[in-house]
């Protein structure tokens, strides 16, 4: 079997919280990412879905080295990244890039588009200045912008155009993997579709692999043949798009899918919504046992017994359920 492009194994990222000296509160431990494992093949896309605080962004930031992993392993093309030094990282930075949510905050307002696009090439000493400018032009063309835009500043562009610039910058070094953190959630509906289509087109053209992070299940469905759902720092379900959306196994995935509003009044009127009670618990104080158990509709229907006891005391493993499906639930 060939080496996957990205193999993440039991990745953990914990943060210390609170200040013992000032507030008198005890130092706490926030387990933002708590044992996440998945693999990503070349040219593949995996959707990482979850609500705020589930650890999906921290997972991406830890993979790309913006934060140091607490434990676990991240192998890129067979090479362990978590133990690399700053210099050792350099060749791998070229091969994986990130696209951010906010196209307004992720571009330097004082740089022209041309300088934004050539900067990664300069840092990595790719080509001569002339080659870099030509490369910037071809990048603009690839993301559907005009060559004249090279001399403009970010504030002269709309949100959708800015996101195109962010994508062009990420593509400058011809990476193999793009980590996309909510790249369309700040955009208007009519623009979202443009960017989703562009990401699909670029993936085919350049053979890119995507780790696509989003809270929006409908967007993920359009971009990712494989999906993983996170809750409180862990993957609670993963599988191929078609079967996961049609027949979700974990009660949280079921609730998440049922909570998505459907843009069709007739179907909205007749469909039964399953509204989850309560809030997502804070990751610094996760419930014992299965982290989802206080909100779980399946547990609420379960008669007292061995299964129900396990939910409150034992975290369920992410078990194989056949056909490439996995989910972590004691109650089937």
């Amino acid at each position: 079997m060939s080496t996957p492009l990205l193999a993440v194994e039991r990745l953990e990222k914990h943060f210390r919280t609170g200040r013992a000296d000032l507030s008198g509160r005890k130092r706490g431990l926030l387990r933002a990412v708590d044992g996440v494992s998945f693999t990503l093949e070349r040219g593949e896309s995996l959707g990482l879905v979850g609500e705020s605080g589930c650890g999906k962004s921290t997972t991406a930031r830890t993979i790309i080295g913006l934060q140091k992993a607490t434990a676990g392993s991240v192998r890129f093309d067979g090479v362990e990244l978590t133990s690399l030094s700053r210099r050792g990282w350099q060749p791998y930075r070229r091969r994986m890039q990130m696209i951010f949510q906010d196209p307004y905050a992720s571009l330097d307002p004082r740089q022209t588009v041309g300088s934004i696009l050539t900067e990664p090439l300069t840092i990595h000493r790719v080509g001569k200045p002339r080659d870099r400018r030509l490369r910037a032009l071809s990048l603009l063309d690839a993301v559907g912008l005009d060559p004249r835009h090279l001399f403009r500043y970010p504030h002269e562009f709309s949100g959708g155009q800015r996101q195109r610039i962010g994508i062009a910058r990420a593509l400058a070094l011809e990476p193999e993997l793009l980590l996309c953190d909510e790249p369309v959630s700040a955009l208007d509906v009519s623009i979202q579709a443009q960017i989703v289509n562009l990401l699909k087109e670029l993936q085919e053209r350049f053979g890119l692999a995507y780790l696509f992070i989003s809270h929006d299940l409908s967007i993920v469905r359009h971009l990712c043949p494989r999906v993983a759902v996170m809750y409180l720092g862990r993957i609670v379900e993963s599988g191929p798009r078609a079967s996961l959306y049609a027949d979700p196994g974990h009660p949280y995935t079921q609730a998440l899918l049922s909570a998505v509003p459907v843009p069709d009044p007739a179907r909205e009127a007749e469909r039964r919504r399953q509204v989850l009670g309560g809030d997502v618990p804070h990751p610094s104080a996760p419930p014992p046992g299965c982290a989802f158990h206080p909100r779980c509709p399946r547990l609420a229907l379960e008669p007292p017994g061995a299964g129900a006891t396990a939910c409150r005391s034992e975290p369920p493993p992410l078990a194989e359920r056949g056909a490439d499906r996995r989910w972590s639930c004691h109650l089937v």
Binding site: G160, S190, A193, Q194, N197, S218, R221
Partner: peptide, 27 residues
């Protein structure tokens, strides 16, 4: 019509490109 067509949904063909409106709304 363009707006309704560009909303991604949980049904429909996930592999078909989303229909979109070119350009952006005037500022």
């Amino acid at each position: 019509r363009g707006l309704l067509a560009s909303v991604p949904t949980l049904n429909g063909d996930p592999d078909a490109p989303l229909s979109s409106i070119p350009g952006s709304p005037p500022l």
